[in-house]
Design a protein around this nucleic acid. Structure first.
Lengths: 235, 235
DNA sequence: ATACACAAGATTGTCGACAATTTTATTTCA
DNA sequence: TGAAATAAAATTGTCGACAATCTTGTGTAT
């Protein structure tokens, strides 16, 4: 699960960079449990690097909001609540709504074609598989859909802000949920694509905002019906 | 020009923290020229700290988007174009629009009263001063207005994203412009406050989005009428 | 004269050791 | 027994030195 190409260089040239990617994956996959304190000497010896390099990597993780640091105390893996996840959805509603509006104006025909094929493939996989397997990539497909539109907005900073500051947190939470991508969401995606094809920015924004809001409600409902221990430790 | 209290701790306890604040101020005030490459040995000796601490401070500056780093090459002070500033305004339109919508719902009466007094004071100073002096704080007042609303949204992450990732960049650019806060913008502020008083989130969002868009257009017009050398080096 | 190859210099990345602070364990007193 | 003070251990912050990489200047060949 690498960064998307437009957000980060694929090839980590420095030790701290590689370490950052390794730790990021470990955090997202739950290998490093949420809320756990990071012991610098311990992790450094595990990964066989110096504490200096490790600290640099931790700094980068802090940028992605995957760890929080307090001076003289240390760093902890994030462990955020349902309310905080809802906050993120609210921000996504605003930012991705704007992204859709801009994409309607700035997306190239090639990008639109790619987006359409992406949605078509996704629809196919939903029809042909009885129920999503454990190796189901519908969630990645969903991320790809959103990423594609954000990229189409041609607003570079919007892209990096969403990818660097928000999407890792979304992944962080998603990893801890049962994979559930509904056909309802699928239809919402299709409506958005249609608006983009018509180059109707106003409508694209409205539909995207509705879609994110609906996704938030679906996530909230799912989360509140789960038992606390299913979610792992929160707070 | 410190961080706002809700965003960062005022008291830097560690050397790297103090250095970060010092460098941040130096960058925003143009003491360190835009686009200049940072020499780690040079800066470290100037501030009388080790390169390690300096590198940590630079990391923090990178989070605020005030410097960009490339591995094995070094860090440079940002130097962004008018187009990039416009990108930021687009993001602000979306995020602050949402902030206004949420603030209409979540702001306390005390916060609303504070906001009103803030706008009143601002209006007064606009009437009584012939034309904005060099020591004019109308720009800070404008920042305070927006900050107040963002804080009122009660969305903590929205607050930190705007303060940490965007507002420093806005300040960075503003510092290099002639102070120009129009009475038009003042009136827009008043309309927004009225909508907040009515707890009309829909309208508050619309008005805020209009205000940010108008501010963007005003800034763009002003920038394009300036000679390139007035702006300092860009690209 | 221009372009390329190479060497010298400077800069960044990495490491281990020491200092300052926090956390934990122990002792002491009410 | 419980709470506060104190000592010991562990952790984080800071520093200077070395290695790897990039940049600059020089020389050479076409």
């Amino acid at each position: 699960m690498p960064f998307h190409p437009a957000c980060h260089s694929y090839e980590p040239v420095t030790i701290a960079d590689r370490l950052f990617l390794d730790l990021r994956r470990a955090i997202l996959e739950g290998e490093l449990p949420a809320g756990k304190k990071i012991s610098e000497p311990e992790l450094a010896s595990i990964y066989g690097v110096s504490r200096g390099s490790l600290r640099e990597a931790i700094s980068k993780l802090e940028n992605c909001n995957l760890v929080t640091r307090r001076p003289n105390i240390g760093a902890r893996i994030v462990n955020f609540s349902i309310d905080q996840l809802m906050e993120i959805y609210q921000i996504r509603e605003a930012m991705e709504g704007m992204a859709a509006r801009l994409a309607a104006k700035n997306m190239t025909e090639a990008e639109l074609a790619h987006l359409k094929s992406l949605v078509a493939r996704h629809k196919d996989s939903l029809l042909h598989t009885e129920r999503p397997a454990k190796t189901d990539y519908s969630q990645d497909a969903d991320v790809d859909f959103h990423f594609c539109i954000i990229q189409g907005s041609k607003n570079q900073r919007l892209l990096t802000m969403l990818c660097q500051d928000l999407y890792d947190l979304v992944r962080f939470y998603r990893m801890r949920l049962s994979p559930a991508f509904s056909s309802t969401a699928m239809q919402e995606h299709e409506l958005i694509v249609q608006a983009l094809e018509r180059r109707d920015g106003e409508m694209a924004e409205l539909l995207m905002r509705y879609h994110v809001r609906a996704s938030r409600d679906r996530a909230k409902q799912r989360l509140e019906s789960m038992s606390p221990e299913e979610l792992g430790s929160h707070h």
